[in-house]
Computed example of a mutant assay.
Amino acid sequence: MNFDIRAVTLDLDDTLWPFAPIGARIEQKIHAWLEQHSPATAARFPIAVMRTLREQAFAANPHLVHDLSALRRLTLEHALRESDADLALLDPALEIFHAERNKVECYPDALDALTRIAARVPVAALTNGNADLARCGLDAHFVFQLGAREHGAAKPQASIFHAACARLALPPAQVLHVGDHPLMDAAGAMGAGLRACWLNRQGLAWPLDQARPDLEFADLTALADWLDTHLDTKDTAAA
């Protein structure tokens, strides 16, 4: 397959690192912090109950689907209010969340592959999540990070993909979006006119009743290899 790629937009959670261990650690750390600073809140909202409360906040506020930080804040504020706790605890509790949220452990292939890809083409982070690449210590690999909260709409909305392309000063057809989610990443990118790479780490069957993405790889090393070959071939042909 031959097409012109001048930049890559890259999803973060479950593409560059697994989110599940981060989410579990956040729950544990916040609960432990509440046990120390607001025992009544911790008793009334143990981890499973707090998780249900968070799901309810998400369901009740679809207008905030692009702002996971705001939804997290609503969840913690509700728990504190319902347990008659001091609302001054809200910001310190949220700082516990952000500190843990940005302790990421990349997949074994990810950092070396990311370094290789970024040496070839500009790489921009495009995420619905609330990781902060600077706090993660990974921002040097990216030309910018664009989040759904900053943009005001989440993937798979075309506008966030188009905003990234505008910042890259490239037409969508010359940008390859890479991510793990079939709908949010692959289908969303294709719908916005970008090239799409589904990072299928689990070896799943394509689940959507629509065209498959341009590329599909099991890890980022395979993508870096493809870019090396593709761009070398393109440069040779141009010469």
Rank of each mutant, 00 (worst) to 15 (best):
N200H: 12
A166H: 14
K234F: 09
F58W: 01
A40L: 12
E35R: 09
A205W: 01
A148P: 01
A99C: 08
L12G: 08
A57Y: 02
P18Y: 05
V49R: 15
A43E: 15
D91F: 00
L94K: 03
L220K: 02
L208S: 03
A7P: 07
A79Y: 01
A237P: 09
I22A: 08
L12M: 14
L126P: 11
G188F: 14
L90W: 02
L89D: 11
M50L: 15
F142E: 14
L114F: 09
F97Y: 11
L199H: 12
D91S: 01
A211R: 05
D235Y: 01
L168A: 11
P62S: 01
E35Q: 15
R73P: 04
T229N: 13
W198E: 06
E150G: 10
F97I: 00
N102K: 12
E35H: 09
A222E: 12
H162W: 15
L208W: 09
H66R: 04
A186G: 07
L194S: 02
L183S: 10
A163H: 07
I117R: 09
G129S: 06
K234S: 03
A40I: 14
I30R: 06
P39C: 08
A189L: 04
D14H: 10
A59P: 14
D139Q: 15
F19H: 00
H141C: 14
L71Y: 05
L114W: 01
P122E: 12
Q36M: 09
K29D: 13
F161T: 03
F3G: 02
D228G: 08
A119E: 07
G179R: 07
T9V: 13
A40C: 15
P92I: 13
L10W: 04
S69F: 06
W33A: 04
H31D: 08
K234T: 14
A205Q: 08
D11M: 05
V143P: 03
L183A: 12
H177S: 09
E35G: 00
R116Q: 08
D209Y: 03
A88F: 04
D109P: 07
A57I: 03
V8Y: 02
V178H: 00
D185L: 06
Q145M: 14
P46Q: 02
A224M: 00
L194H: 04
A59Q: 15
N102T: 13
F19M: 06
D219I: 06
Q157V: 14
A118N: 08
E150P: 12
V121L: 07
R54E: 15
L90P: 00
A148Y: 02
A119T: 12
R149V: 10
A187T: 00
C165V: 13
A224E: 00
Q56G: 15
A187Y: 04
A169L: 10
A70I: 08
H78L: 02
L68K: 04
L94M: 11
A173V: 13
A148W: 02
I5Y: 01
L215Y: 09
Q56F: 09
P18K: 11
L220W: 05
E216K: 00
F45D: 04
D235H: 07
D14M: 10
A131T: 12
A85V: 11
A192M: 01
M1W: 00
L126E: 14
P21R: 13
G203A: 14
F161D: 00
H141S: 11
